[in-house]
Write a protein that binds this DNA or RNA. Structure first.
Lengths: 189, 189, 189, 189
DNA sequence: CTCTAATCGAGACGGTACGTCGCGTCTTACG
DNA sequence: CGTAAGACGCGACGTACCGTCTCGATTAGAG
């Protein structure tokens, strides 16, 4: 972690510039020159902080992905899965600015892969679900679908409420994976 | 459609070369020079057939995607959705060489997007599912998840039988979308 | 020499096309495709007649250059050099269409070099002028300057009469080379 | 004018490489890749300095041409034209390395045209020679012939002395243009 | 006048050079 | 004396032409 104030300023500027540009164009088609121009830093300065474009994306996304995963994975084990799903959706809604960029921006596909990759290494060998469902596939499907549904949600003009999305997510993804029926009672409250 | 024997030969060579290289490396990191070298054609010849790399990928994938979608979408409407799911899995197993490249190769993300894009424009305004589920999200989730599960399947060392995959696919994706319970009876036969 | 009517037609068309295009653009910047398009022949047909662009230019120019040289070289030996100069100018005036293309068109530099090359090999070791003037330089200067003056003449909007040009040519080039004073008497007639 | 040491180094390397290659091959048949390879610079660097091959040639030649012209044109007006001609020849002999490349190398034709072009725009409307000689033709012939004779001189194995060439140049070109007889007296000294 | 072989148009192909763009490194001039 | 500015080597891009080649379609001239 850098302590020099200038370094911190540069990193923040680069991160913000990347997120801003991802709302306009696909990640692959961004150039480092564009990012540095937007960030207001020198071109070479970029390389003093990151070896390449992907590294910057990682720096922006990896922590956030870990945070989100920390809320997603337990959903599959929690006693009350619907409540957990709700918490997940509320968290995303609370950070919608950043997650809009990551879930619907030009880097969605890359972030999605990283999301699943982290999930896989997190759950490794831990879970034992129903016998008809290979555990690895459960993780891939669960995290992938969750990512997609959240991405769809944030990509809409008129966004649904977090509650509605939680319901959908639970019915389409969570419940089929764990056979939970709790949602209806929770929703009935 | 070209009729000249030379054009047909070149196109086939380029298509095959792309599929071969996709088994080794990510689509973005392929160069056109590599593709033409592998195909045994001249570099400039590539551009006589396709404006860019993406166009070649489309030429390879679009028709196959349409075929697969023609089997996927009806699954959601068929009386016996489990049988339809089985048919889908058997079709993929029957063309596993090509679909391995498209589903698990370096272009999976792009093919996935095209798969969903085609599905969306196919189903446009047609379907009316349960009221709690926006129809567009149903399509995105259904096709996306199907794509992922098939991709996971073909990416495994020891592949499951088509029947097992159909069961999983039906339980995780199809049934939750349409509330069908038919699978169990069918599987019981 | 081809006898087939089709071959003759093609060659003529190509020759004419080259001359026409040379009035518009430099020889180097002409493409064979342009020439064949202008000639109304197929692209490959060009190569059935000439191995490359230069060969076509040679076919157009070489004979004409030889003709002109046959009138130029003797000028330096003739008893009455001014009369010979006049004859030369009249000949050029009589074929001004072709010579305009060759002397002022986009191939002038190449034709000039060929003109001097032919002259050099024609006069080889023959001439013995004044001792202060190396014979080879005499040829180079004589033919080169003649070419330039004729080129300047045909490139003018309002062309001088052949007589005036002959006078200039004789005073500037011929007389200094051979010390002839005959012109004045001839002009006085 | 660039001040950055790297830019200056690159430009010098490119200029030298061009002159070196011109001693071996014709300008048209040089490729930019060859020039940069010889210069030891990257291919793209060429275009950071010059838009094309011609621009590099100009950069090499234009100043030198201007210098030489500054000595050539006055020859026609100076009181003692023979002395001026001598000075011209001595100047060329003093820079024979460079002028050999420009006058006899593969770019001679192009340099020649530029030489005449500059002379024409320099003398524009100034000179009034004898009435039988159009002033523009006088310039074209004078500069063109001077160029040729100097080129012939530097192209010889055993070069004549500058004095001899000055004599030839004066007798063949200068004197006929201006009617000067001074040379003989000067040479007689 | 007919048949057969040469010539033609069309244009795809393998090459090679072009001029452009972006990367990641490394030097330089300036503050 | 440190840092931004940016020149550089590299390598892929997409374009343009070259000269070769394979097609049928046509057409000239020998029989």
């Amino acid at each position: 972690m850098p302590t020099d104030a200038r370094q911190i300023r540069s990193r923040k500027a680069l991160n913000a510039a990347l997120l801003a540009l991802l709302e306009e164009r696909s990640f692959d088609h961004l150039t480092i020159r564009e990012i540095t121009a937007r960030a207001g830093t020198g071109y070479a300065t970029f390389f003093r902080h990151y070896p390449d474009k992907e590294a910057l994306l990682n720096d922006v996304a990896t922590d956030e992905i870990a945070n989100l995963l920390a809320m997603t994975v337990p959903v599959l084990y929690e006693a009350n899965s619907y409540e957990s799903t709700m918490a997940l959706c509320r968290y995303v809604a609370g950070h919608s600015r950043l997650w809009s960029a990551l879930l619907t921006g030009g880097a969605a596909a890359i972030v999605r892969e990283e999301f699943i990759r982290q999930a896989r290494s997190l759950v490794e060998d831990v879970r034992d679900g129903p016998e008809w469902l290979p555990s690895d596939l459960g993780v891939v499907h669960g995290t992938g679908s969750t990512f997609d549904i959240l991405g769809w949600w944030l990509g809409q003009e008129n966004r649904l409420d977090a509650e509605d999305v939680a319901t959908i997510l639970h019915r389409l993804v969570i419940a089929p994976l764990i056979g939970d029926k709790v949602e209806k009672r929770a929703a009935a409250q």
